[in-house]
Simulated scan of single mutants.
Amino acid sequence: MHLKDFLLFYTPALLLVCSYQQVAGQTAGCTVRDGVTKSVICSGELEVHQIENFFRQLVQHGMMRFDELWISDNALIQRLPVGFLGELQFTHISIVSCPNLVQVDDFLGASSDSLLSLNLHWNGLSEVPQLTAPKLYELHVYQTEKRIVIRRAAFERSRGIVKLDFRKAIVEPFAFFDLKTLGFLYIRNISPKPLVAGSFNFDSPGLSYIELTSEDPWEGHIEPGTFGGFVSSTWFRLGTAANVSPAVFFPVLNSSAVFEIGVPVKCDCQVAWIRLSSFLPRTTIRCATETSSVMLQDVDEAEFKDCGSFCTV
């Protein structure tokens, strides 16, 4: 392309970016970054209609396909409406540090057909949004103060998800059951309330890794029936457990999954069913002692001789 043609083609978009920043000021604005990745970046306190106007002008200049959208540091946004992205298509979207963003409708527009990765970090959401994104591969939702509720309905129109990553979450029963390709689930600060039956029941043959940990105090109380659908390829890492009864964990170990508990437990008769069974080699359970901890495998079987009868597996 000759220099004259190049300038004629790109000048409108460049003027668009520059003029918009001048109107919005130096601390807020939308820009297009065309480097290794082609990105749209909207930073600072912009109203929703201002961002939508910028999107429409991009479309008018024939710029519709991008690798990434980044919206950040915006205390004005409270809601992302249906079709917010219009005709723009993004592969990756990050909406970060918008503390008053409490509602996200099905905002993707044309990006419904292109979105692979969505990050919603440090916003004010109370539940995982229901989005139409059949190609969505991974979803990350990190909260600061408010816990986000994960409901089954959130994934009705995005069932191809492989990776889910949450911080500060409450899980409702069967929230993940419809995700047939789910491979990885991280909940890094789970609700301190007891886990209820059905919360972590899966139907994904490729389920590889589940991590449920807590930064806040959590006693690890879990109802029977909470876990189901684990497979032999699953590695399940649980931060803590109030007890290790078969009523809760038999479905996990009977599936041939690998099971790990992060915090040492009291290794009395509650763990005898694991120590004296074929489940033992697939577990990483440390027993709390007065001064340190010891692996359950290293506790002599004789320690459990008075635990009564049970069926050896």
Rank of each mutant, 00 (worst) to 15 (best):
residue 2 H to P: 06
residue 12 P to H: 10
residue 18 C to Y: 06
residue 19 S to K: 01
residue 22 Q to M: 12
residue 26 Q to I: 13
residue 33 R to G: 02
residue 40 V to E: 10
residue 43 S to W: 06
residue 43 S to V: 12
residue 47 E to M: 08
residue 51 I to M: 15
residue 54 F to K: 09
residue 65 R to P: 07
residue 71 I to N: 04
residue 72 S to Q: 15
residue 76 L to A: 13
residue 77 I to L: 15
residue 80 L to T: 02
residue 81 P to Q: 10
residue 85 L to Y: 12
residue 87 E to M: 11
residue 88 L to P: 08
residue 88 L to M: 11
residue 92 H to T: 14
residue 95 I to V: 13
residue 98 C to G: 13
residue 99 P to Y: 01
residue 99 P to F: 06
residue 106 D to P: 03
residue 107 F to C: 02
residue 109 G to F: 06
residue 111 S to Y: 01
residue 114 S to Q: 09
residue 114 S to I: 09
residue 115 L to V: 07
residue 115 L to P: 06
residue 125 L to F: 02
residue 129 P to Q: 06
residue 137 Y to M: 12
residue 139 L to A: 07
residue 140 H to W: 06
residue 141 V to I: 15
residue 141 V to E: 05
residue 146 K to G: 04
residue 147 R to Q: 07
residue 148 I to Y: 07
residue 148 I to F: 02
residue 149 V to Q: 09
residue 150 I to Y: 00
residue 151 R to K: 13
residue 155 F to A: 08
residue 158 S to M: 11
residue 163 K to D: 09
residue 164 L to R: 09
residue 165 D to Y: 05
residue 168 K to R: 15
residue 172 E to G: 04
residue 175 A to L: 00
residue 177 F to Y: 09
residue 177 F to L: 13
residue 179 L to A: 01
residue 182 L to Q: 09
residue 184 F to P: 00
residue 185 L to A: 02
residue 187 I to A: 00
residue 187 I to S: 02
residue 191 S to G: 06
residue 193 K to F: 10
residue 195 L to S: 14
residue 196 V to C: 02
residue 202 F to M: 05
residue 205 P to I: 08
residue 209 Y to S: 04
residue 210 I to Y: 05
residue 212 L to G: 14
residue 214 S to G: 01
residue 222 I to K: 01
residue 223 E to D: 12
residue 227 F to V: 01
residue 227 F to L: 03
residue 230 F to D: 08
residue 233 S to Q: 10
residue 235 W to T: 08
residue 236 F to D: 07
residue 236 F to I: 00
residue 237 R to M: 09
residue 241 A to M: 07
residue 246 P to C: 03
residue 249 F to E: 00
residue 250 F to W: 04
residue 256 S to E: 14
residue 257 A to W: 04
residue 258 V to C: 14
residue 258 V to S: 11
residue 261 I to T: 12
residue 261 I to E: 13
residue 266 K to Q: 05
residue 267 C to W: 05
residue 269 C to V: 07
residue 270 Q to D: 15
residue 270 Q to T: 11
residue 272 A to S: 15
residue 272 A to V: 09
residue 288 A to P: 00
residue 289 T to D: 12
residue 289 T to P: 10
residue 294 V to Q: 06
residue 299 V to M: 12
residue 307 C to E: 05
residue 309 S to D: 07
residue 312 T to N: 10
